[in-house]
Computed example of a mutant assay.
Amino acid sequence: MSTTERKIASAVVPDELRLNVLPRYLGRHYFAGESLVYDWAGRLDRSYEGGHWDFFTLSNDGFYMAPSNQGRVHVRWHMNGYSDMMGADAFGITVTLFALCHLAEKTEDDTIVERYHQLREYAAQHVEAANILRAID
């Protein structure tokens, strides 16, 4: 990391504050965005069967969602040949990136595009950055 790059911090959103997270970050597209996250989870992990997800905010004003209480996940994406294991947090980042990209294409909303880039910047600093970036390539 160069001296011009800043370390981006993440923080889990407490349960009592979750209700406002998606409307804040996705605006009027929050319902479609949440649905796309769960849809992409099923596309990238064939064993995904739902469950509780944590919401995370980022110090660069981004956000992501990640499944709670889940171990490592075997992620496969046929469009780029990616197939590897990653932790639940990295899986959540990957899934949220796919969902944001999809939502940005559907809505052509610059705010959604910005959310994608904020999360992508964080993903590049993540401990599993190599896996995340290979999966979304």
Rank of each mutant, 00 (worst) to 15 (best):
Pro23Tyr: 11
Leu36Gly: 01
Asn20His: 05
Trp40Ile: 06
Ala129Gln: 09
Val75Thr: 14
Val73Gln: 01
Arg43Phe: 10
Arg6Phe: 02
Met86Asp: 02
Gly87Gln: 11
Arg120His: 15
Asn80Phe: 05
Asp39His: 15
Tyr64Trp: 01
Gln118Gly: 03
Leu58Phe: 08
Arg24Ser: 13
Gly92Met: 05
Arg120Tyr: 14
Glu114Gln: 08
Ile136Leu: 03
Ser83Pro: 02
Arg43Cys: 09
Tyr48Gln: 04
Asp39Phe: 14
Arg43Glu: 12
Phe56Val: 00
Arg43Gln: 14
Arg115Ala: 13
Gly81Met: 01
Ser35Cys: 07
Asp109Lys: 05
Tyr48His: 04
Glu121Lys: 06
Val75Asp: 04
Val73Glu: 01
Gly62His: 03
Glu105Asp: 11
Tyr48Phe: 13
Thr111Pro: 00
Ala11Asn: 10
Gly51Ala: 05
Ser2Leu: 03
Asn131Trp: 10
Leu103Val: 10
Ala135Arg: 02
Met86Gln: 05
Asp45Val: 08
His78Phe: 08
Asp54Phe: 06
Ala90Ile: 03
Glu108Tyr: 09
Ala135Asn: 09
Glu34Arg: 13
Ile112Trp: 01
Gly50Thr: 09
Asp84Ala: 15
Val12Met: 13
Val21Met: 05
Arg28Ile: 15
Gln118Arg: 06
Pro14Arg: 12
Met65Trp: 07
Val12Leu: 15
Lys7Pro: 04
Phe63Arg: 03
His52Trp: 12
Arg6Lys: 14
Ile8Tyr: 00
Glu108Pro: 00
Arg134Asn: 12
Tyr122Trp: 11
Thr4Asn: 07
Thr3Ala: 14
Asn69Asp: 10
His126Ser: 02
Asp15Ser: 12
Tyr38Arg: 13
Glu49Asp: 15
Ala32Glu: 13
Gly51Met: 02
Ser10Gly: 09
Asn80Lys: 09
Gly71Met: 12
Ala41Ile: 00
Ala130Asp: 11
Leu17Met: 10
Ala104Val: 02
Gly42Cys: 04
Leu133Gln: 12
Thr3Tyr: 04
Leu103Ile: 13
Arg120Ser: 07
His117Asp: 15
Leu100Pro: 02
Ile93Arg: 04
Pro14Gly: 04
Met1Asp: 06
Asp109Glu: 06
